[in-house]
Simulated assay, not measured.
Amino acid sequence: MRLLLQPQPQPQTERTEFDWIDARVPDLAALSVGETTVLRALATGSSNTAIATALCVSERTVESHVRSIFVKLGLLQCADENRRVIAAVVWTRSAA
């Protein structure tokens, strides 16, 4: 069970063009180990085929993880947004 706490004031930081992503996408803690591994590879620009080869899994498994990543991060299919790029930005910003 999660306790709802008052948000702590964050120090004023420089705004970037990707701030809207941080406001909309939940924490990466919801991802499984496999999903996190796929997301890390996705963030390097790897294709599903390359990720599958590197992880010694089927391409279908990678596709399943990618779909699950999109759902857990709230990245619904939209013609105006590239979900792979947004997911990569989320990963990159969380690793910083």
Rank of each mutant, 00 (worst) to 15 (best):
S47R: 07
E63S: 13
S47Q: 14
A54K: 11
I51W: 00
N48I: 09
L55C: 09
V66Y: 00
T53S: 03
L39G: 06
T49R: 05
A54E: 08
G74V: 09
T53E: 07
R60W: 12
R40F: 12
T36E: 06
S58M: 01
C56V: 08
G74E: 10
T36F: 04
E35L: 01
A50P: 01
K72Y: 02
S58I: 02
G45N: 04
F70T: 09
R67C: 13
V66R: 09
I69M: 05
Q77A: 15
K72P: 04
A79F: 01
C56M: 12
S46T: 06
R60M: 15
N48H: 14
A50N: 07
E59D: 13
I69T: 02
V66S: 03
T49I: 08
T53W: 01
K72S: 02
V38W: 09
I69K: 00
R67I: 04
R60G: 14
F70R: 14
A41C: 13
R60V: 15
L73Y: 00
T44S: 12
A52H: 02
V71Q: 12
A43G: 07
G74W: 04
A43W: 03
G74F: 08
R67Q: 12
R60P: 14
Q77W: 12
E59K: 10
I51Q: 03
A54G: 08
F70M: 11
S46Y: 10
L73D: 01
R60H: 13
R60K: 15
T61H: 10
T37K: 12
R60C: 14
V38S: 10
S58P: 03
V62A: 02
G34M: 13
G34C: 09
A50V: 13
G74T: 13
A43K: 03
F70E: 12
V38D: 10
S47D: 13
C56Q: 14
G45R: 06
Q77H: 14
T36Y: 05
I69F: 00
S64E: 15
I69R: 00
L75C: 07
E63D: 07
C56L: 13
V62Q: 00
V57T: 10
R67E: 11
R40T: 08
A41H: 11
E35D: 05
A43E: 00
G34L: 13
T49V: 11
I51E: 04
L42Q: 08
H65D: 00
T37S: 10
T49C: 04
V62E: 01
H65K: 00
T37R: 11
S68R: 04
L75A: 07
G34F: 11
R67A: 15
V66M: 04
S64F: 14
R40M: 15
I69A: 03
L39M: 08
A41V: 03
V66D: 04
L39S: 05
A52F: 02
L39Q: 05
T37W: 08
E59I: 08
T37L: 12
L42F: 05
A41F: 11
A52R: 04
S47E: 14
T53H: 07
E59R: 14
L55Y: 03
V66I: 11
G74S: 13
L55T: 05
L76M: 10
R40N: 15
A41R: 09
C56W: 06
E35S: 07
A54I: 01
S64R: 15
G34Q: 14
S68F: 00
Q77M: 08
A79S: 03
C56D: 15
T36M: 10
V57I: 12
E35I: 01
V62C: 03
